[in-house]
């Protein structure tokens, strides 16, 4: 599967109402560690059809970041049935993320 782009407009439908587990990467284009997180998310998206993986640009979706208490980027959240079940703060390895799934 490819890496999706989540926004304030599609978040409810694509993340909260999704039937599959969704992994969300809150990032910004100007953040160094976010750039290193990006290929890890691509890898997860490319290798797991049972998951939905996507990114949220905090610059464009500030309210969403604030709503979910994001105060440091990258922040990775694993959503199941509309709820954030796991939160990883800072650069996180593929293994650590998949372990939580």
């Amino acid at each position: 599967m490819y890496l999706r782009k989540f926004t304030q407009d599609n978040f409810e439908n694509e993340v909260l109402k999704a039937e599959k587990t969704v992994i969300v990467d809150f990032f910004a284009t100007w953040c160094g560690p976010c750039k290193m997180q990006s290929p890890i998310m691509d890898e997860i998206a490319g290798s797991r059809n049972d998951l939905i993986v996507g990114k949220i640009d905090v610059d464009e979706n500030r309210d969403l970041a604030i709503k979910y208490g994001v105060m440091s980027i990258p922040t990775i959240m694993v959503f199941k049935n509309g709820e954030a079940k796991n939160v990883f703060i800072g650069l996180t390895s593929k293994e650590d993320i998949l372990e939580a799934v």
Partner: peptide, 16 residues
């Protein structure tokens, strides 16, 4: 409180 008000990168997290 790491990531919940404590940060190690001003450039990354100043935004919040």
């Amino acid at each position: 409180y790491e990531g919940r008000g404590i940060s190690y990168c001003a450039i990354c997290d100043g935004f919040f």
